Amino acid sequence: MENNTSIISPGELTALLLLAKQAGSGILSVYNTDIEVTLKDDLSPLTLADKVSHDIITEGLTALTPAIPIISEEGKDIPYETRKNWEYYWCVDPLDGTKEFIKRNGEFTVNIALMHNNTPVLGIIYVPVTGDLYYGGEGIGSWKETAEGGKTQIYADVKATEWISVGSRSHASAEEASLLARYPVSETISIGSSIKFCLIAEGKAHIYYRQGPTMEWDTAAGQAIAVYSGATMSRPDGEPFEYNKPSLLNGSFLVKAG
């Protein structure tokens, strides 16, 4: 770990990107079999793929940065008193979009974020089915790597006069339609998981509003990629979006290009 001007070294970044891909491979090893689904305490679905990815990521992060703690969807029961003063920590969703995974539509991701003083300063999102890899961070900007190995710096489209909104395939709301009516939205795309943040970061969409509940690991990596591409993310009232709260449940948020 280097100073805060670069956050991590190039070698550490390479290792982290490989780790996300390894987790994705673990997910696909389950995706290509008969998927068995159980329910968490909140009745949301859980598959073996969640656990496989979680184990790969936590083992890799612990080896790479043993001094940095981890908050993960599959390892989230850390008391607030323990984590409230953490300067750095990892915020991880081993499989974002479990419902999309179960539907077999390919719209699920691996999310890894590095937090510094409760702000996402590095985000990595890997889409296992397509092989697309997105990452963004302080000092490096935001990037997309394709399965074929192409690498491009990506930027939010801050000059568009007609906007494309992107929303959840599984969680659309009436409040979303009401808020989007305030903006020059001419088209709407529905897609699952944190891919929505990536579409804004690469200029393929311009606004994403989420009214329904999410968890901090659902948004941290996507926020970093969007923000370091030139987009903004806040609460709908414009106030900063907060992390490492006593409850890890998120309120509503708004992501915009520029």
Rank of each mutant, 00 (worst) to 15 (best):
D55G: 04
Q223E: 13
A205H: 00
I35V: 15
E73A: 09
I140Y: 04
T161I: 11
Y155I: 02
H206Y: 01
G141C: 05
E2K: 02
C91V: 12
G97K: 09
S247V: 15
T146R: 05
N32K: 14
E145C: 03
A224W: 09
Y134K: 10
G137P: 06
S234L: 11
S193V: 08
T188C: 00
A177H: 06
L16Q: 02
R210G: 06
T219H: 03
L17H: 02
H54L: 11
I78Q: 10
L48Y: 10
I8M: 02
S72D: 07
L28Q: 12
P79T: 14
G222L: 10
M233K: 06
S194V: 12
G60L: 01
T146H: 01
L95V: 10
L39A: 15
G123T: 10
G60S: 08
K196Y: 04
G222K: 06
G192S: 13
G123M: 02
E36I: 15
E107D: 07
V255A: 08
M233C: 10
L249M: 14
P236Q: 08
L61T: 04
K245W: 02
K256M: 08
Y183E: 03
T232Q: 14
S25V: 08
N105T: 13
S72K: 13
R83P: 07
P69F: 10
V37L: 11
G251A: 09
M233Y: 03
E162W: 04
P10R: 00
A160P: 13
V110C: 07
T5F: 11
N117L: 14
A156C: 15
K204Q: 13
I125T: 11
A20M: 04
V92P: 05
K159L: 13
D218A: 12
G75R: 10
N4V: 13
S142Y: 06
G167Y: 04
T33N: 11
S170L: 02
G137A: 13
P69R: 07
I189A: 04
E216S: 12
Y134W: 14
V121R: 01
K40D: 08
T14P: 00
G141Q: 01
L133F: 09
T62P: 05
A20P: 03
G149W: 09
S252F: 04
V166Q: 06
G251T: 14
V37H: 07
D93W: 06
N118R: 13
T33E: 15
G149F: 07
S229Q: 03
I56R: 01
S72R: 07
S247G: 10
T33C: 11
E176F: 00
T65Q: 04
Y134F: 15
E138S: 10
P246Q: 15
S142D: 03
G123Q: 08
R169F: 00
G149S: 09
L180V: 02
A156H: 01
S142K: 05
G26A: 11
T58D: 05
V121H: 03
A147G: 14
I200F: 01
V227D: 01
G251Y: 01
G123R: 00
P246D: 13
L133R: 12
V127K: 06
S25H: 09
